[in-house]
Simulated assay, not measured.
Amino acid sequence: MKTFDHLSVIGLREWIALPELGMVGLRAKIDTGASTSTLHASDIVQFEKHGERWVRFTAHLGTLVQRRHRCEAQVVSVKTIKSSNGQAQTRYVIRTLLALGDRVWPIEFTLACRKTMRYRVLLGSKALVQAQLVVNPALTYVQEKPTISLLGAQ
C-alpha cells in the first residue's frame, strides 16, 4: 500500500470558516463525489458592482439552531449542476477563501438551497485537490477549528 506523507488527512466532517464572507464555525461534510463545493444560500439577488456581476444572499449556518448571515460576493460563473437525484439546477458560482485547520486557500462554491440537508456546506473534490487533502471517511473533525488569529493573518 502506498502512503503519501506530504498530504494532510481530514475526516468525513470538518470545521471550516469562510473569512471573506465573515463566517466562522461552520460544519462541512466532505463529498468526494461532488466536483464543486456548495454553500446553502437563499434570497439570492444578482446586482452590478463596479461593472461586474455580484450576488447578495443569505447564508444559513447551523443545524439545530439556525443562524442567518447576509453576504455579498462576485459571481465567477453560472453553472448547471446535476444533483444526486438527477435534477439539473442552474447555480451562481462564487470564489472565496476557505479556512480548514491551519490552511487558508481560495475555492469556488455554488450557491444552492440545502434547507432539507443536514450539512449546510459540502466540500467537493476540487477544493480537496487544491489543498492536497486526503479523506479518511472513518474519522470526523480531525483538524482543529480555524482560529480567529489565523483568519486575521490573511
Results as ranks from 00 to 15, higher is better:
Met1Thr: 15
Lys2Gly: 13
Lys2Gln: 13
Thr3Tyr: 10
Phe4Asn: 12
Phe4Val: 09
Phe4Ile: 10
Asp5Ala: 11
Asp5Phe: 07
His6Thr: 14
Leu7Trp: 04
Leu7Pro: 12
Leu7Gly: 05
Ser8Leu: 14
Ser8Ala: 10
Ile10Gln: 07
Ile10Ala: 06
Gly11His: 01
Leu12His: 04
Trp15Ser: 05
Ile16Phe: 03
Ile16His: 04
Ile16Lys: 03
Ile16Ser: 01
Ala17Ile: 00
Leu18Pro: 07
Glu20Asn: 09
Gly22Ile: 03
Met23Asp: 05
Met23Trp: 07
Val24Asp: 03
Gly25Trp: 03
Gly25Pro: 01
Leu26Phe: 00
Leu26Pro: 02
Arg27Glu: 11
Ala28Asn: 07
Ala28Gln: 01
Ala28His: 04
Lys29Gln: 00
Lys29Glu: 04
Ile30Asn: 00
Ile30Leu: 10
Asp31Lys: 00
Asp31Val: 02
Thr32Trp: 01
Thr32Ile: 02
Thr32Leu: 01
Gly33Tyr: 00
Gly33Trp: 00
Thr36Asp: 05
Thr36Val: 08
Thr38Ser: 12
His40Gln: 02
Ser42Asp: 08
Asp43Ile: 02
Asp43His: 14
Ile44Cys: 02
Val45Asn: 08
Val45Leu: 08
Gln46His: 11
Gln46Arg: 05
Glu48Phe: 09
Lys49Arg: 15
His50Lys: 11
Arg53Leu: 15
Trp54Ala: 03
Trp54Met: 08
Trp54Ile: 06
Arg56Trp: 01
Ala59Arg: 08
Ala59Lys: 02
His60Thr: 13
Leu64Trp: 07
Leu64Asn: 15
Val65Pro: 04
Gln66Leu: 13
His69Ile: 14
Arg70Gln: 15
Cys71Arg: 08
Glu72Ile: 11
Glu72Arg: 15
Ala73Tyr: 09
Gln74Gly: 05
Gln74Trp: 14
Val76Cys: 11
Ser77Met: 13
Thr80Asn: 11
Thr80Val: 14
Thr80Met: 12
Lys82Arg: 15
Ser83Cys: 10
Ser84Pro: 15
Ser84Ile: 12
Gly86Trp: 03
Gly86Glu: 04
Gln87Val: 15
Ala88Gln: 15
Gln89Cys: 13
Thr90Ala: 12
Arg91Cys: 14
Val93Phe: 09
Ile94Tyr: 02
Ile94Thr: 01
Thr96Cys: 11
Leu97Phe: 12
Leu97Ala: 13
Ala99Ile: 12
Leu100Pro: 06
Asp102Met: 13
Arg103Trp: 13
Arg103Cys: 09
Val104Trp: 02
Val104Asp: 02
Trp105Val: 14
Leu111Met: 10
Ala112Arg: 05
Ala112Ser: 15
Cys113Lys: 12
Cys113His: 11
Arg114Asp: 04
Thr116Ser: 12
Arg118Lys: 15
Arg118Tyr: 07
Tyr119Cys: 09
Tyr119Ile: 02
Tyr119Gly: 00
Arg120Phe: 02
Arg120Trp: 01
Val121Cys: 05
Val121Lys: 03
Val121Thr: 04
Leu122Tyr: 05
Leu122Met: 14
Gly124Thr: 05
Gln130His: 10
Gln130Pro: 07
Leu133Trp: 04
Leu133Gln: 05
Val134Cys: 10
Val134Ile: 15
Val135Leu: 01
Pro137Gln: 11
Leu139Cys: 10
Tyr141Gly: 03
Gln143Trp: 09
Gln143Arg: 11
Gln143Asp: 12
Thr147Ile: 04
Ile148Asn: 07
Ile148Arg: 15
Ser149Val: 12
Leu150Asp: 11
Gly152Phe: 06
Gly152Met: 06
Ala153Glu: 13
Gln154Trp: 00
Gln154Leu: 14
